[in-house]
Simulated scan of single mutants.
Amino acid sequence: MTTFPGSARVEMVMGMPVSVDIRTALPERELTPVLDDAFAWLRWVDDTFNPAKEDSQVGRLSRGQTIRQIPELIEVLHRCDELSEATNGWFESRINGVIDPSGYIKGWALERLSRALCNAGAVDHRISAGGDIRVRGSAMPGKPWRVTVRDPRTGVVRAVVHAHDMGIATSGRRPIVNPRTGKVQVGLGSVTVVGPDLGVADAYATALYAMGAVLARRFAADLAASGPYETMIVTRDGQETTTPGFTRHTGAATRLAV
């Protein structure tokens, strides 16, 4: 079977293993600096946006301290505000005076990295970090990427997504706060959102998880009816429902009951 030569690397960034798998046939002298730059970007994102880091720009902003004029910071905060409005406040990057864009920033960072890899000529790639995955191009000549979506609590395979260009975001691996109550949401097992922009899919998955099962089903149906983002919702007892468009990428037959 013909395969792409490419190169892959895994490093710990943002407190988790992050993998960048490039399948485009580029010479090693080009692939090595591309991968170096990829992980340098991800480390910069973590240093800038991680609220747990005392000297991060987000942490300093929460404490009212002086920050550097960084275009990316303005972009992220503005986009978080837009996503809060789009989800009726269920996605919220400001809770109790603390700025925490973690429900968006990982997906945003991987989406930006994916575009940068394309610009560098590495058009066939898969980037994975926790529950966020961005694929472009082909895994093998003419073949789409095959992305396994697992239940973050049990490890059970819930879906296999086939795609040449897609963001796949799954929430449920880490605690998610209900912004209306300030308490950790416990009603769902996981929420997976697929669509063209991984940052947006990440934020939607976070918001849907925070909503709980009933509201999440309704919002997911409305989201699918109005745009390209499709959803799979898994409850704590293992019941699985999807929007109709989700099955176009998996071949599954389950439909969302509204």
Rank of each mutant, 00 (worst) to 15 (best):
M1K: 10
T2N: 14
T3V: 15
M12S: 13
V18S: 04
D21N: 10
I22L: 07
I22Y: 03
T24P: 09
L26P: 07
P33C: 04
L35A: 02
L35D: 04
A38G: 04
A40I: 01
W41N: 10
V45T: 02
V45K: 00
D46V: 02
N50I: 06
A52N: 09
D55R: 01
D55F: 05
Q57N: 02
T66H: 08
Q69G: 02
E72G: 04
L77M: 06
C80E: 03
S84H: 12
S84A: 12
E85C: 03
A86S: 05
A86I: 02
N88M: 11
G89R: 06
E92F: 03
I95W: 09
I95G: 03
N96P: 00
G97K: 06
G97D: 03
V98H: 01
D100Y: 00
S102P: 10
G103A: 06
R112I: 00
A116H: 11
A120P: 01
G121L: 08
A122P: 05
V123F: 08
H125Q: 03
H125D: 04
I127H: 03
R134V: 05
S138A: 14
A139W: 11
A139K: 13
M140G: 13
P144K: 12
W145E: 11
P152L: 13
R158E: 15
V160L: 07
H162K: 12
M166Q: 05
A169C: 12
A169K: 06
R173V: 00
R174S: 11
I176M: 09
I176W: 01
V177I: 13
V186A: 14
L188K: 06
G189I: 02
T192F: 08
V194Y: 07
G195H: 08
L198H: 05
A201N: 06
D202S: 10
D202A: 11
A203H: 02
Y204G: 06
Y204W: 11
T206G: 07
T206D: 06
L208N: 01
V214D: 15
R217V: 13
R218Q: 15
A220N: 01
A225M: 06
A225R: 12
S226L: 07
G227Y: 01
P228D: 11
Y229C: 03
T231G: 07
T235R: 06
D237A: 08
T241F: 12
T242G: 08
T243Q: 12
G245R: 05
T247H: 08
R248W: 08
H249E: 07
H249L: 14
A257N: 14
